[in-house]
Design a protein around this nucleic acid. Structure first.
Lengths: 168, 168
DNA sequence: TATTGTTATACTCTATAACTATA
DNA sequence: TATAGTTATAGAGTATAACAATA
């Protein structure tokens, strides 16, 4: 597996004719890919995603269901449209996630009398309990995964990731 | 849509009973989720992924096919197992990607005489040409997406992302 | 008309087991 | 037996169109 170097200057488009590699051996750094922040992000996300999935397995949650449950627990009463927006999931896809959580009796949908088209999403007692356990598991997972990062580095990464979304 | 704050201290596990939100209005920061680097990474990756997909549409490449083509162009002769390892794609999944590229006559598989089980992957002239075009499109996409980042910030993000994978 | 939740659908990525041909 | 490439398959994330109920 090719390893990334320290960093890579943004630089201009091509570094030459696309065919020739850099000629180094199996330790060769594949600059054509690693110079892209997007490629690095896919790789990093793959690692984090896999570790998180493993960490949440004991509570039967995935990344998506954890996010949904977290929002319902910390902002009870929000609607599905609001939740979809908050966690960046399309509404049709959210329905399935919520069905899953509701089937396990972790959340419930309550018709809003003020607008009977929408539901207020509420956590059940079991949902709150499971969420706290899931939170602890996820905290442990991140602590393990980012063990090599000090507080400043961690904060810097968090800040930079938020900025990628165009939010300040 | 909830917005992230500056940053979030790693801190201990739970900040209290999971039910209560922070009570702010629609601008409320959903700390329960945004405190996780993993969550931020999923969100950031979603943005980058969507923008990259859009950018590569003119050349008919996706993130995965671009990565594969990039490796074949810059390290011609590598085998499928080596490529799968290099771009972190399972070998069975890589077969489909390479079939797609081969069907478009962008790459070709050449039996290795030294070990007739494996193929040497080689770019065609058309593949090299398309790759250079794709590279330009991807460069433009990253330049646009990371326009708000100066060279140092960009380098810092690249370095931190590489470290998430546990590589130094 | 517009919006909320929903159904249906399709595409992509990811992951695993098992087969074949070669070694 | 072990490895390279392959097939088949299943799970999950993501995206869009269209519908019923409600506003």
């Amino acid at each position: 597996m090719a390893s990334p170097p320290e960093e890579e200057a943004p630089g201009p488009v091509g570094s030459g004719p696309g065919a020739a590699g850099d000629g180094r051996g199996e330790e060769a750094f594949d600059a054509a890919l690693w110079r892209y922040t997007g490629y690095r992000m896919r790789r990093a996300w793959g690692v984090v995603q896999a570790d998180m999935a493993e960490a949440l397995r004991p509570v039967g949650l995935r990344n998506s269901t954890f996010s949904a449950l977290a929002m319902v627990c910390t902002r009870p009463g929000l609607t599905q449209t609001e939740l979809a927006q908050a966690i960046a999931v399309e509404r049709p896809n959210l329905v399935v996630l919520l069905d899953e959580l509701a089937a396990r009796d972790l959340i419930r949908r309550e018709r809003r009398e003020s607008d009977r088209r929408s539901f207020a999403l509420l956590p059940t007692a079991a949902g709150q309990k499971l969420f706290r356990r899931a939170q602890a598991l996820n905290d442990a997972h991140e602590a393990r995964l980012f063990a090599g990062f000090d507080a400043e580095e961690r904060a810097a990464l968090n800040r930079l990731l938020a900025r990628v979304e165009g939010r300040e």
